[in-house]
Design a binder for these strands. Structure first.
Length: 576
RNA sequence: GAUCGCGUAGCUCAGUUGGCAGAGCAGCCGCCUUUUAAGCGGCCGGUCCUGGGUUCGAGUCCCAGCGCGAUCACCA
């Protein structure tokens, strides 16, 4: 395919005939004149504030003048050879700069061009700062790699280029060619030979110094947040690196990544309310999946020994700092494993992931923990808010019962005292089974005592509160399950999966009847028996370990983000 | 869904006891060849979230609603 290279400026458009104006118009109303009627994207004063309309009009007026008076087309085309700003900056060479300055001084007045060994670069970015000092214009560009200054000297560029450079706005997307040098003040910059606008920003920009701070605006206009707040791009670069690492790690251990249905005729695999949707041609009610579990287990039946899926789940529930209605989870199943297979896998994965993310955070310029922090354990430590999470192996392990007794002060089997404590907590325990009262007290009192700075596996959950989980063969009163907590968040559970179809069917049936008293009526209406899944178990599923890891919450921990919305590009918001 | 807090210029924020609606940034005009949140002079910019109410007078007090945030519930 033929490479067209840089686009060239187009002549002014004929439909501006009669609207030509001198650059320094004396008509005070000129900047407030309405946009051309044939401009389909024109905003009107009625859908913007009066003042915002004026700001937009000023930008449109520049656009028009560039076209009419400078013959430029400020919405550009393909440009080849652009290097990231950070790369351009790295091309700076002090000796080349010094040699050029000396050669320029020596050549002054001779007319001969001075020898110039400074690296030529082509850069592109969005204008973040702009200063017009008369015959010298400075502006800063920003791209995904960082910021870089461009300096434009009236003496070194064509008049039209300089006129353009003087009128650039915060937010415009600019391509500049030039040599990498520095200013007298020592700022590394591109000394521009050419400057072109390739996208005129018509929207009023956020505040220059504070950026965009209103959380709602940051999420609604993520595209503004991303350029105004560099840490936003960094967070998503880090998240992407994290997910890639997890995939590489799983792939290297022989796990096959698969994709199972997100639209399911039955929403199973978790206790949650689903979203409902509808297929027109098949006239069929469908649910957005609440978990991939039942499909992944079918794959074990089919003969895949090690599978995982990283993808979205949808739960029709509340929104808070650690919940978004659509969220990303990794589920893993390994034939002939159990929940301890999954524990070892999780511990190794997260430890190595934290080592990797420590390097990535450093590479992206995030501040690091003080030297020697947690060095005695030899593991990476990564700040998360006010905590310094110690990701060294082994992670902490504690049983449910021990944690309960340690935090509450008496054994969880002392149901009378448990009920008394629950009443003090305001729990309406009278109609609840003993073990669900225990769990109320556990979640209210024991879970918060876990050290947020140490990943902790909570083991040996009571079978009574894990109705779908396989009981331990030697000690049926405990479930073969654990939960991992980090930073006061549940990161994920793992199970020794049930593969006896008769027991599975019995448990499903009991759950459908509302057994255990945990599910409210509203939720039960969405529950239904997945008979095909039971049939799959009848075909025969190997015993297996299963794991679920909350990818968004891991991203929060590893990018030091206080809310799940900071690690989801477009979190759910009410429509305006 | 509940409780609490917040909502003022395009953005970031002040606004006293209820008494003329404010600043910085951004924008427009002018000056400057070394700026680093540039500077100087001049100018423009408001549905004080919405709707009621109290009052001579409401950004401010009261009620309702909407939106956002925090906590809780649900949940991972």
């Amino acid at each position: 395919m033929e490479s067209e290279g840089k686009d060239s400026p187009r002549p002014g458009r004929s439909w501006h005939h009669g609207r030509m104006m001198p650059m320094n118009s004396e008509d005070p109303h000129a900047t407030a004149s309405p946009a051309p009627a044939n401009d389909a994207t024109a905003s009107t004063a009625s859908d913007l504030g009066h003042t915002e309309a004026e700001l937009v009009a000023a930008r449109r007026d520049k656009l028009r003048r560039w076209r009419d008076e400078l013959g430029l087309e400020p919405f550009g085309q393909r440009v080849d050879g652009i290097v990231p700003l950070a790369h351009a900056r790295s091309q700076f060479d002090e000796s080349a700069h010094a040699d050029f300055e000396a050669a320029r001084a020596a050549a002054a007045g001779s007319g001969a061009p001075p020898e110039d060994r400074r690296a030529p670069v082509r850069v592109a970015g969005r204008i973040m700062q702009h200063r017009d000092l008369g015959k010298l214009v400075f502006f800063w560009l920003r791209d995904h790699s960082g910021d870089l200054q461009v300096t434009v000297s009236k003496a070194q560029v064509p008049p039209a280029t300089f006129a353009l450079a003087k009128k650039l706005d915060y937010g415009d997307i600019v391509v500049a060619d030039g040599r990498i040098g520095r200013t007298q003040r020592g700022e590394v910059c591109v000394w521009a030979a050419s400057v072109e606008v390739h996208a005129k920003s018509l929207a009023p920009p956020p505040e220059k110094w504070h950026g965009l701070t209103d959380p709602e605006l940051r999420y609604r206009q993520r595209y503004v947040d991303m350029y105004a707040n560099p840490e936003t791009i960094r967070t998503f670069q880090l998240r992407s690196g994290m997910v890639s690492f997890v995939r590489r790690w799983m792939d290297a251990r022989g796990f096959l990544e698969v994709e199972t249905p997100m639209m399911q005729p039955l929403a199973g695999g978790a206790a949650a309310r689903p979203f409902v949707t509808h297929h027109n041609t098949l006239d069929m009610q469908l649910y957005l999946r609440i978990a991939p579990e039942l499909y992944l287990k079918r794959l074990l039946v089919g003969g895949l020994p090690k599978v995982y899926e990283i993808n979205r789940n949808f739960r029709n529930e509340g929104v808070d700092r650690s919940h978004n209605p659509e969220f990303t989870m990794m589920e893993v199943y390994q034939a002939f494993g159990d929940c301890f297979t999954m524990l070892e896998l999780t511990e190794s994965l997260l430890h190595e992931l934290a080592v990797f993310m420590a390097e990535e955070r450093a590479r992206h310029g995030m501040s690091q923990p003080p030297e020697g922090a947690h060095a005695r354990r030899g593991g990476p430590s990564l700040s998360y808010g006010k905590h310094l999470v110690d990701w060294s192996k082994p992670f902490e392990r504690i049983t449910y019962g021990d944690l309960f007794e340690r935090a509450v002060g008496f054994p969880m089997t002392d149901f009378a005292k448990v009920r008394e404590r629950a009443r003090h907590l305001g729990v309406d325990e009278a109609k609840m089974d003993d073990w669900f009262v225990v769990n109320e007290v556990f979640e209210a009192i024991a879970e918060p005592t876990l050290d947020p700075a140490r990943p902790t596996f909570v083991l040996e959950y009571p079978s009574a509160i894990s109705p779908l989980t396989r009981p331990n063969r030697a000690r049926p009163e405990i479930a073969d399950r654990w939960d991992l907590f980090i930073g006061h968040m549940e990161i994920g559970p793992a199970y020794s999966e049930l593969n006896d179809p008769d027991i599975q069917l019995a448990k499903f049936t009991e759950q459908l009847r509302g057994g255990g008293g945990e599910a409210d009526e509203d939720e039960r209406t969405f529950r239904s028996l997945d008979e095909d899944f039971v049939q799959a178990l009848r075909v025969g599923m190997p015993p297996a370990g299963g794991l679920g890891l909350g990818i968004d919450r891991l991203a929060m921990l590893l990018t030091d983000s206080p809310t799940i919305r900071d690690v989801i590009l477009f979190p759910l918001l009410r429509t305006e």
